[in-house]
């Protein structure tokens, strides 16, 4: 209980607005829920990788079956949606990163921009390695 006495003479009956559906009432909150929802796709993707690792441990036939499953329409749709959501996760992650950084004299946009640039650079590097060279 608050040690501050209510200033209302009628005191007792206050009304509390319900919270149900709160996130649908403001576009800012909708974007927040989409950001948080990206985690479902990421978790599912990690499980896809885990299954791939398991199939790899079972030998060539099992692994090729997993590869074939990856090419199924359901899998492609899942990965396409996952790609969009995880790109959004990536953008929002760097967008809010300045809030977690200690107070600094540099422009928060530089932190966000730097993070996004790093993600793009690492992605290009991985693609390049796969294209030309990694043994």
């Amino acid at each position: 209980m608050s040690r501050y006495r209510s200033t209302a003479k009628t005191a007792a009956r206050t009304y509390m607005q319900p919270m149900a559906g709160w996130w649908t009432k403001n576009p800012y909150f909708v974007r927040y829920m989409v950001r948080e929802g990206s985690a479902l796709l990421l978790t599912a993707y990690a499980l896809v990788l885990l299954v791939g690792l398991w199939r790899l441990s079972q030998g060539a036939a099992a692994f090729d079956a997993w590869r074939a499953a990856l090419a199924s329409p359901l899998s492609v749709v899942f990965h396409a949606v996952g790609l969009v959501m995880v790109v959004y996760h990536s953008y929002t992650w760097f967008d809010v990163m300045p809030k977690t950084a200690p107070d600094q004299p540099i422009d928060p946009k530089l932190i966000t921009g730097g993070g996004i640039a790093a993600a793009v650079a690492v992605s290009v590097l991985i693609l390049a390695a796969l294209l030309w060279g990694a043994p």
Partner: peptide, 26 residues
């Protein structure tokens, strides 16, 4: 706090509470 961030958007005095809270998670 789950870093929704709307507190800092609506602050009329540019206090940026989301920044205060989240740097203190560290």
């Amino acid at each position: 706090c789950t870093l929704v961030g709307y507190c800092s958007e609506v602050c009329p005095k540019a206090v940026d509470p989301a920044h205060a809270i989240n740097q203190n998670k560290v």
